[in-house]
Design a protein around this nucleic acid. Structure first.
Length: 812
DNA sequence: GACCTGCTGCGGTTTG
């Protein structure tokens, strides 16, 4: 397949078109839809763009120019504003270079009102935008006309959207756009994930044919584990990795430009501060980048990086995606990357060019974590990658979408139900469920009828519309599926904006307290509304901001790779450097207790001055362990009423009790029975409280609670209280409420990961249990014990807690 | 005797 445009452009870049690109052009010429998958740096984006251009050209679309008629042909959706700007810049350049005179518009939130109106009147051939902006267009009068002439829709980074409610926004928008123009060609661009076929089905709609074009290219990745000088001095617990500071700086010095990825924002701040303190020569050459910093700082860093002015940047996932950092030739990952796909994504940021090798160093933060170096190499070799699990039956998003349509041109309920039922997310929707969503919008459903604000839709000539300007405006203000905590702006007294921190952190500080932020030492001077006013500080002691943010546990697939690594801890030959290095640690574990084999579960029962510890090592990741621990504690307390403090980490569980209780292999076997798991989760875990928390986001997306005007957000406490009210009302008077059920479903699916827990119980029930009673904490046990000092929660009820307090008082 | 965890992403400014 020849593609003149591509040939010219690729030739200028000194590149050659790959086979997958040819295939893509062929598919486009055949009028197909599909998914394009290739490693980063191989020009997926341009492949599609050139293919689309070729189609216009073939149809002599250029002729239209003579008639001065311009219509929107291509809609390009990316999840990132920064990315859309990048694509816009590059494609404008290409069309200019090739003298094609195609018009390309960029529409994201920061376009002005006048700009938007101009775009509406005169749709360009191509529009580059975000999922939220598409819904905003649908929420304007005659917004749908805008898409009438659409021929191609391209969803960039589809794998990123797929696993979130933003993916549902895309599914719903596509269902509408396909109805407006049945000939619409849909293309997704995706990185490698475990379920590409499914990703294709979801994008195109279940049962729709389309091609899946995979690049047959093997990107070379060089993974190096950074070892400490000696194992004895390396901590058994902890997650900072600062102990390897000197080694990291040595590596940074070997390359021109390095990205240092950390797992959390506070960790990034600490690393930045430590490097600058111990290696002052890095001043001006080292930068920091994470999601809480101001746009200004971030853009500066990105540009400086692009121009090769920086030696290194300490960052979080904020640099995972997007912007093309050609000059980066080395990547460091501090701490467990938690997932294989994330690790690959980050590795790919170095050597971002066809045929270049990606170099990534893995920097473990504690002894046991060293083994993940081995696991990651194994996963990459075996091409194990995570799947993205799509959301299903997200009625909050559906309700928002229906409102969007009503605010726009209005809709016919039956037509929309049919369209919606053809998406993957709502494949199983029933008429009754749809009616419930409608009822909530029309009169607030069975519980909220008395409130005017919930009479949102009006039937006009068979079409549902929103007639209240106030409600329409409020809705446009709250389109989207990203819910975040209230952030406070951190500012100098001069007004200079530094970035933002969660309200919950600032509220814990007193005036005069010192903390590190944006790589500076700051003192809190004053709090004004949503602003925290600060001044530079010289005080020695500093607190590092801690942000809320999602807990992220090790992915199931990385878990599999880690369990694979643990298979060879017994071997003495043919083992990786990581396992060889850890041998002394495993020897100690073995002599104190035991080393579990692949089909064995190690359980340790240890007595210390803190009480009786039961340690179990299922290696299932923290999230699953948390749920599992509570189920085990519940089951144990059924046998003998006991209260436990629970602690977990990525590898294992600790159940700590003040009193001794009888335990043996047989009892342990019973504990791991997969029978009745669902019931025991319900009885042993406060699922209701978890659902109540989840419900806040759901209520926000569904538009039950208004999050406030821009710049005047409601306090998170207030929002939580409002959402809590709805939760209680629904629980009591409308237990079948769809949004309420959704909250519970999300708790079971995403928080407790019931599916994974079930599999883990089934797996472990077949394992042989190695029960040991060491006389002190083992290398496996210590990290969990250390964690429990920081965060300790308990399944004990109020009564026994009081009792315990009393005992302590009496003892004292 | 080992311990400073908690990501990312977007959008919108008016009425009583």
């Amino acid at each position: 397949m020849k593609n003149e445009f591509a040939e010219v452009w690729f030739y200028n870049q000194g590149w050659q078109a790959h086979e997958f690109q040819q295939k893509c052009w062929e598919a486009l010429a055949n009028g197909e839809s599909g998914i394009l998958n290739a490693p980063t740096g191989y020009g997926k984006t341009f492949a599609i763009w050139f293919g689309v251009l070729a189609q216009y050209y073939a149809k002599e679309a250029m002729q239209e120019k003579k008639n001065k008629k311009k219509t929107l042909h291509t809609l390009w959706i990316t999840p990132l504003r920064a990315l859309s700007k990048e694509i816009h810049k590059a494609t404008s350049q290409v069309s200019q270079d090739l003298d094609l005179d195609y018009e390309i518009e960029l529409r994201t939130g920061d376009t002005t009102v006048a700009n938007r109106q101009r775009q509406r009147k005169n749709p360009p051939q191509a529009l580059i935008t975000t999922p939220e902006s598409v819904h905003l267009i649908l929420a304007t009068k005659e917004g749908q006309d805008y898409f009438k002439h659409l021929e191609f829709i391209i969803i960039d980074e589809w794998h990123e959207l797929l696993g979130s409610k933003r993916g549902v926004l895309i599914e719903l928008a596509l269902s509408r756009l396909k109805a407006i123009n049945p000939n619409l060609k849909i293309w997704g661009i995706s990185a490698t994930i475990g379920n590409l076929e499914e990703a294709k089905d979801i994008l195109l709609g279940p049962g729709t044919k389309g091609s899946l074009i995979k690049a047959d290219i093997h990107k070379k990745i060089d993974i190096q584990t950074v070892f400490p000088d000696n194992l004895e001095k390396f901590p058994w617990a902890g997650y900072l990795g600062i102990r390897l500071l000197d080694k990291v700086v040595d590596i940074v010095n070997q390359y021109k430009t390095t990205l240092i990825f950390t797992n959390t924002r506070s960790q990034a701040e600490i690393w930045y501060q430590q490097i600058i303190t111990y290696y002052p020569e890095f001043a001006g050459l080292l930068a920091i980048h994470h999601g809480s910093l101001s746009d200004e700082v971030r853009t500066w860093v990105e540009e400086a990086l692009h121009e090769g002015r920086l030696k290194a940047v300490v960052c979080t996932s904020s640099l995972d995606l997007g912007v093309d950092f050609r000059p980066v030739d080395c990547v460091l990952q501090v701490g467990s990357p938690k997932g294989i796909a994330r690790f690959l994504q980050r590795a790919g940021r170095s050597g971002h060019r066809p045929d270049a090798t990606s170099i990534i160093y893995y920097v473990p933060t504690n002894s046991l974590e060293i083994i993940e170096g081995d696991s990651l190499k194994f996963a990459v070799k075996e091409k194990i990658v995570e799947s993205r699990i799509p959301y299903v039956r997200s009625f909050d998003v559906l309700i928002q979408y229906l409102m969007t349509l009503a605010v726009g041109d209005g809709f016919y309920a039956d037509d929309i139900l049919q369209e919606v039922a053809q998406t993957h997310c709502f494949e199983s929707i029933t008429q009754e469920e749809f009616d419930q969503c409608m009822a909530l919008l029309i009169h607030g459903g069975s519980t909220l009828q008395a409130y005017d604000d919930f009479h949102r839709l009006v039937l006009v000539d068979g079409k549902y519309k929103v007639t209240s300007r106030k409600l329409a405006m409020r809705h446009r203000l709250s389109i989207g599926a990203i819910v975040s905590d209230l952030m406070m702006r951190v500012k100098f007294r001069s007004g200079k904006y530094l970035g933002s921190i969660e309200e919950s952190f600032i509220s814990k500080l007193n005036i005069g307290d010192v903390f590190w932020f944006s790589g500076r030492q700051l003192e809190l001077v004053q709090i004004m509304a949503n602003d925290a006013i600060v001044k530079p500080s010289e005080k020695k002691k500093g607190v590092v901001p801690s942000w809320m943010g999602g807990r992220f546990a090790i992915s199931p697939d990385l878990g599999i790779a880690i369990r694979h690594s643990f298979k060879s801890i017994h071997k003495t030959q043919g083992i990786s450097p990581e396992i060889k290095f850890l041998k002394p640690l495993f020897k100690e574990q073995e002599s104190l207790s035991a080393l579990p084999k692949e089909d064995e579960l190690l359980v340790e029962y240890i007595q210390t001055k803190y009480g009786y510890h039961l340690f179990l090592y299922p290696f299932e990741g923290k999230l699953v362990h948390e749920g599992m621990a509570q189920v085990l504690a519940y089951r144990l307390s059924l046998i003998k009423p006991t209260t436990f403090s629970i602690a977990t980490n990525e590898y294992g569980i600790e159940l700590l009790s003040e009193t001794e209780y009888p335990i043996d292999e047989k009892l342990l076997k019973q504990l791991f029975s997969p029978q009745q798991l669902h019931q025991d989760i319900n009885s042993g875990i406060n699922v209701q409280e978890m659902a109540r928390r989840r419900f806040r986001d759901i209520a926000g997306i569904a538009g039950l609670i208004f999050q406030g005007f821009p710049g005047k957000q409601m306090k998170s406490k207030h929002l939580q209280a409002n959402a809590g009210l709805f939760f209680s009302v629904f629980s009591e008077y409308d237990p079948g409420n769809l949004l309420l059920r959704e909250a519970y479903d999300e708790v079971f699916d995403f928080q407790l990961e019931e599916g994974r827990m079930q599999i883990a119980f089934e797996r472990i029930s077949k394992h042989k249990i190695i029960f040991s009673k060491p006389n002190k904490l083992t290398p496996f046990a210590f990290p969990i014990f250390a964690d429990s000092f920081r965060e300790r929660y308990s399944n004990e009820d109020w009564q026994s807690r009081l009792e315990k307090l009393k005992m302590q008082l009496l003892d004292g």
